[in-house]
């Protein structure tokens, strides 16, 4: 990876592998993931539970327990080599250059500190400001994420707030030190539908206003379409298909992506129609089959799919997929084509 390319890209991940040791067999959670995010771009990582999307996201801050995790490959954020950082460089990087929004803010916030104190702590950790300046900044952040009566809410504890308010606090906390990159780990999964939309709209608005790059992990394709410019589909620790939102929704080429789109419930689905599902279960990451990991569940599988690894193939300027048969497989799902 040349330094020139990192000038325009906010994030460059090259051949990232993450393996968790400690169990009976090592779990290969992320296998050879490469991903680029340019400045101001929002990329969604979608996939089932255990597909490695959250692990990839957390790798960007190197949040995995060092003792039990083996990481290899390259990660650059804003031109900084994350893999080469020592403990204090890493601590200065986290929250300042890249920050994270967690899925369940009630669990991700310290229960015995007020939310204001937690934001002020973060600001004072990274910026040389007095406590009163940090407090003023926290107040401004609360207004920015549209928390009503912000002054009063700063003194509240996480358990005293509603789920939507807590997620706004989480977003304010993540934005506290003006990061370049926002990592959102299923930020709307724990919220109810109407609040989900509000949070997604807020994220999109903040993204365009602050010029943030966002990596957004979700298993909700609807949410991904709502906020993302580009979508990367993950399966068994690999990116199996990557394209801009429009292309991916209209012409998905990987059988897994196609199956995912077919399994969505649509408004147009007639009553009594069976919802398409993907047969079988995701593979055991401690015991991955050779060849394509999706082969056992794939409707287009042929014997050659089960042998040797499959390279990712470019299908267009912004479109690539990891499948031997992309050129033969045609997408014919009418409902999805309408989306």
């Amino acid at each position: 990876m040349s330094p020139a390319s990192s000038a325009t890209s906010a994030v460059t991940i090259e051949n990232l592998r993450v393996t968790f040791a400690g169990g009976a067999a090592p779990v290969r959670a992320v296998n050879n993931v490469s991903l680029r995010v340019t400045r101001g771009e929002t990329v969604a990582l979608i996939g089932e539970s255990g597909s490695g999307k959250s692990v990839t996201l957390r790798s960007l801050l190197r949040l995995h327990p060092a003792k039990k995790t083996q990481m290899s490959g390259q990660i650059e954020v804003g031109g900084r080599d994350v893999m080469a950082m020592n403990a204090s460089e890493l601590a200065a990087f986290r929250g300042r250059v890249a920050s994270m929004i967690f899925q369940e803010p009630l669990l991700a916030l310290d229960p015995v500190y007020s939310v204001g104190d937690q934001i002020i702590e973060s600001i004072q950790r990274h910026m040389k400001v007095s406590r009163s300046e940090a407090h003023a900044r926290a107040l401004k952040l609360f207004e920015q994420v549209r928390i009503p009566s912000p002054e009063r809410r700063l003194a509240a504890y996480p358990h005293e707030m509603s789920g939507g308010m807590r997620q706004r606090v989480m977003i304010a906390l993540a934005l506290a030190c003006e990061p370049e990159l926002l990592l959102a780990d299923e930020p709307t999964t724990a919220l109810d539908a109407t609040v989900q939309i509000q949070i997604l709209l807020l994220l999109r608005e903040l993204q365009s206003r602050l010029g943030l790059s966002i990596i957004f992990v979700t298993h909700d394709i609807g949410a991904a379409v709502e906020v993302a410019d580009r979508i990367a589909v993950m399966y068994a620790g690999e990116i199996v298909e990557e394209a801009d939102v429009r292309t991916l929704m209209r012409a998905p080429r990987h059988p897994y992506t196609q199956a995912l789109l077919q399994s969505r419930a649509h408004g147009s689905l007639a009553k009594g129609t069976r919802l398409a599902t993907i047969g079988g279960a995701p593979p055991d990451l401690a015991n991955l089959p050779p060849g394509c990991a999706f082969a056992p569940r794939c409707v287009h599988v042929e014997p050659a799919c089960r042998e040797g690894s499959i390279a990712i193939a470019a299908l267009g300027p912004t479109h690539q997929a990891r499948c031997r048969r992309t050129h033969e497989i045609v997408w014919q799902h009418t409902a999805a084509a309408k989306a």
């Binding site: 957390r58 801050l61 949040l63 403990a87 204090s88 601590a91 200065a92 990087f93 986290r94 929250g95 300042r96 920050s99 994270m100 967690f102 369940e104 669990l107 991700a108 916030l109 310290d110 229960p111 015995v112 500190y113 702590e121 973060s122 950790r125 990274h126 906390l173 030190c177």
Partner: peptide
């Protein structure tokens, strides 16, 4: 083992700051 400890480290807190949170809990 709780998620908020990961959250604290994701904010960039150093081990000692995290320890303070653990003590208060």
């Amino acid at each position: 083992a709780q998620e908020f400890v990961v959250g604290l480290r994701a904010k960039g807190l150093r081990d000692f700051d995290v320890f303070r949170h653990v003590v208060k809990n």
